[in-house]
Computed example of a mutant assay.
Amino acid sequence: MSKKFFITILSIFISLQLELFAETINLDKAAIETKTTNKSPMVYLHRTGCPYCEKLEEFTFDDEDVHNYIEKNFNFIVINVSFTEDVIIYQGDKMTPREFAIQMGYNFFPSVLFLDDSGELEHASVGYIEEKDFLLILQYMKTNAYKTMTIDEYKKKTGYIDENTHLIDKRQKL
């Protein structure tokens, strides 16, 4: 057997394996399902080897209160932008995970995107966020408070911070 033939067979085998493990993530369908499940899409963007992503997963997402709140109230969708074979379907377009992150304007990791029932971005949180802070963001989104006030106003209203406390987490974008 020639070396060229062996390399060709190996290349075909590898590409078939990648296709077998590739995932299609249909965010359009997830947005439509919001109407029947009452769970809005919450998209977690991360990349392989990202220390802040690993910390968010290990401490924040694994926290019992955060985990239970997400499970009860959101359609949690995980997208690893390092997986180049995955296909994201968003607003009728097919793209790679990295292209989706860039299109959404969140090519920073970790990022958590909250979408409405039409798939539009309602809120995004960037970077590592501690459990209690993330739980507050989840409540802010689930109660639709984001429609009438900023996250800082919500923190004050809920007693999370008082007038004398410096506002935290300026990374939150509305």
Rank of each mutant, 00 (worst) to 15 (best):
G119C: 11
F76N: 04
H166L: 12
S125G: 09
T36Y: 11
Q17I: 15
L115I: 11
F100C: 05
M104P: 00
D86W: 04
S82V: 07
N144Y: 11
L138S: 06
I25E: 06
D162T: 13
F21A: 06
K94L: 03
C50L: 01
T148L: 06
T36V: 14
Q139N: 14
G127I: 10
Y140R: 03
T36I: 14
L18V: 10
S82I: 08
D63G: 02
P41W: 13
F109G: 01
S111Y: 07
E71C: 00
E122D: 13
S82T: 13
M149A: 02
D169T: 10
L136M: 13
D152A: 13
I70Q: 03
E120D: 13
L10R: 01
M141C: 07
L121P: 08
F100Q: 02
G105F: 05
S118I: 03
H46G: 06
Q103D: 09
K29G: 01
E54N: 08
L20H: 13
C53L: 08
Q103R: 11
K4P: 00
A101E: 01
D65F: 05
P51E: 00
M149H: 02
I25V: 15
D93Q: 14
I14F: 15
T37N: 11
Q103G: 02
M1E: 09
A31F: 08
N26E: 07
Y106K: 05
E85L: 08
H166T: 10
Y128N: 02
P110F: 03
P41T: 12
L135P: 08
Q139T: 07
N38Q: 14
G92H: 04
F114M: 08
K3V: 11
P110D: 03
T165P: 00
P97R: 11
F109V: 02
T37W: 09
H46A: 04
I14A: 12
D162V: 04
F61V: 01
N68Q: 11
P110G: 05
L10A: 14
L56M: 15
